[in-house]
Write a protein that binds this DNA or RNA. Structure first.
Lengths: 206, 206
DNA sequence: TATATTATTTAACACTGTTAATTTGTAAGA
DNA sequence: TCTTACAAATTAACAGTGTTAAATAATATA
């Protein structure tokens, strides 16, 4: 039946319409000002219709976060590293991560700080074996391994180091976002020190 | 006039009553479930009376955060470090910070992530000269200086290193709180690695 | 005791997310 | 083409939120 297909397509289009309206509101007024009624107003429908396409407001927020976060993950894992040394690669990855995250602070914060199980499924990174499921941890672990190829550092430890790197970088990003209006010069010095020294030191196994 | 004094005292008592009721609600149901009406119900007054003692709900939340955060800062700056080496002291401070913060996750998160100017005034740490105003950065900076007493590392750089230490530690704590239910063994390995290795490496100037 | 001041309450406004019942629109079968 | 079935969309309502203005109760001053 072609009907079912069209229905499905229309449903998907409506979902998209709702999500992009929601996205616009978030962009303009922030997450805390997103409301079902505002979305409805924007798409010129009654508020309740939204519940035909999403179970609740949290689901809408979940989708928005997922999109934002996917962009971040992509930007980082597909990093075009100009450097050929593992140290240079780690630097590039870290700088890239910080830049991308700071460009979409709202999406980054809400994705990273959400305690919703659905979101955590995507953002969790501190479990054993994360390097096999989470591209970022995987990439970092490989990088750490390369950096320490001379001395003997087992995969488990490399994973833990990778996790230390990611939480540290997240801490920097989060604090830079929360603590807005930092003097540009100091801000840049801090980022440069973190990228060029801190991260490399954390990566070193011994 | 003794009257004015008593009035003032009674006003302070009422404020305290409101704050401790609010605190209890937060403890029992979390920040997101705190409401003016619930507070009013708990202290057996009408909701509007609260606006005689606090300008709005944000002010109440601000006071709650301030209290929680003060506890954290105290627990860290008054750390009873058993060690006499600067490295040992840094370890103790870091472990202490993580332990205390993880014991009051709600207060920690809301204080650390609030963008309210009032709160930021207390929690901001990434500006130049923070080591002179913020006890934590100050203590960390001194520690870093001691660790690097052999090589020449100027105060400015020590401050930046201190800031890298604090954001990294915060990142770990925040991620541990958000990502609840991590396997205890892995969690402890992670914390131990961070305290015993990561932080020390970040602290090293060269 | 009357007046002024302060504490407290009542009622209301403008929001919020969400549900049940109802109406409108559309496709399929007789 | 008309009726039946189903999906889409709306209206009305509930229970909750923060907050304000106006009215009332309580208390201190003169």
């Amino acid at each position: 039946m072609a009907l079912q297909e069209r229905r499905e397509r229309e449903k998907e289009e409506m979902k998209e319409k709702i999500l992009s309206a929601a996205s616009a509101i978030v962009r303009e007024e922030g997450y805390e000002n997103l409301s079902i009624r505002k979305i409805a107003n924007k798409i010129e429908y009654s508020p309740t219709i939204i519940y035909h396409y999403f179970v609740d407001k949290d689901e809408i927020i979940y989708y928005l976060m997922q999109r934002g976060y996917r962009k971040i993950v992509q930007a980082i894992t597909c990093a075009n590293s100009t450097s050929d040394t593992p140290e240079g690669h780690l630097k590039d990855m870290t700088r890239n991560y910080i830049d991308v995250a700071l460009k979409m602070p709202d999406e980054y914060m809400s994705a990273q700080l959400s305690k919703s199980p659905k979101v955590i499924k995507h953002t969790s990174m501190l479990y054993k074996g994360a390097s096999e499921n989470k591209p970022i941890i995987g990439a970092l672990q490989q990088c750490v391994k390369q950096i320490n190829k001379d001395i003997n550092v087992d995969d488990d430890k490399c994973e833990i180091i990778a996790q230390c790197i990611i939480v540290s970088t997240m801490g920097l990003v989060i604090k830079l976002i929360v603590e807005n209006g930092i003097d540009d010069e100091h801000r840049n010095r801090l980022i440069e020190h973190f990228v060029n020294e801190t991260v490399l030191k954390i990566a070193k196994g011994e």
